[in-house]
Every structure is written in C-alpha cells, then in structure tokens.
Amino acid sequence: MNIFRLLGDMCHLVAIIILFLKIWRSKSCAGISGKSQVLFALVFTTRYLDLFTSFISVYNTVMKVVFLVLAYATVYLIYLRFRSTYNSESDSFRVEFLLVPVAGLSFLENYAFAPLEILWTFSIYLESVAILPQLFMITKTGEAESITTHYLFFLGLYRALYLANWVWRYHTEGFFDQIAVVSGVVQTIFYCDFFYLYFTKVLRGSGKMTLP
C-alpha cells in the first residue's frame, strides 16, 4: 500500500458517499444517470468475486464490502425508492454499446482465460467507460448540480491517483499491471474535459455547472 493508492481509495469512497447522501437527503436522483450506477455495481460485482476465494487484508475486504453495499444501495435509491425523480428520458445512453465491446475485449485481451480472470478484466474495461452515461446526461441536460460535479471530481481523481500509485509501484517493486494501467489512463482521459469545466466553473463559485 502507498499514499497514492490510499488517497485514491479514500477519494473513491468519498465520491460514492457524496452521491449516496445527495440522493438520500434530497430524496431525488434528478440529474443522476442510473445507468452509470448500474454499471458501477456491475464493475464491483465482477471484480470482487474474490471476496470469497482470497483474503488480502482486513482493509481490502472491508472496502470491497462497503463499495458493493453502497453501489447497490445507490441503484436501489434510483430505481426503486426515488424512481419518480429519475430522469430516464435524459439518461438515454445506449449501454449495450459499452457492454458488448467490453465483454468482447475481456475475452480477447486478458492475463488468463479463466472465469475469475476474465470477469476481473471485464470489470477493469467496464470501469473505464462506466461514467460515460453520466457525462452524456450532463451534456444532454446542459447542466449539473454542484454536488454532482463534486461527486465526479472525486471519482475522476481516484483513478488519477491510481495512475500515480502504478508509477510508484513500478519504480519501487517493479509491479506493472498493463490492463489496469491502460484502462486507467483511458478512464482518466474521459474526465479531462469535465476537470477543465470543474476548475473553471464550479470552483469559481458559480455553483451550478452549465455547459457552454
């Protein structure tokens, strides 16, 4: 474990908690892409199956359980508890255009042709594009509440910190996970446009982020 990965995991946790609390307290999921949240729940489900087969550390196990519980709880809030506030017409990204290529690629490009390994690879590829429905929804509605932009900021920052973690691990222990690194770079690139708007608009105190 290194400071970059720890900070990254904390940013990830903060992002997920920000979103959950926003929906729970405002009793509304307006402006939130349910599709992205379903994709994230799928990412955690396919990645954390080793919860039952291998024990890494208490931290690893606890964080996996927390991420899974919060991801499913958020999906529950969106599609069941506060479904009347869900903007399904704005959440129109065709997720099959993500799932099919990601599934195909995870069969083609993986470290081992074994069920757990392919599912893990699928989760890595899927995570890099899972935010697209949410970013697409924001471009469609042309705006995002500031709390939603803080959620996206921490979510984007988490994987950027993981890139630093991989640089650190490469130089200190020769660790290099090509699939995770390439996907992590792609994932972080998708946030660049948002980061620009976040720093120029939201942090200037304009509250809402309205797209040009």
Binding site: R5, D50, M63
Partner: peptide, 10 residues
C-alpha cells in the same frame, strides 16, 4: 504467474 495474479488493489 502473470502480473494480474496478485490482485491486491481495489
């Protein structure tokens, strides 16, 4: 043994 074998990251 391949790079992803040791999956100690979240």
């Amino acid at each position: 043994d391949y790079p992803g074998k040791k999956k100690d990251e979240l």
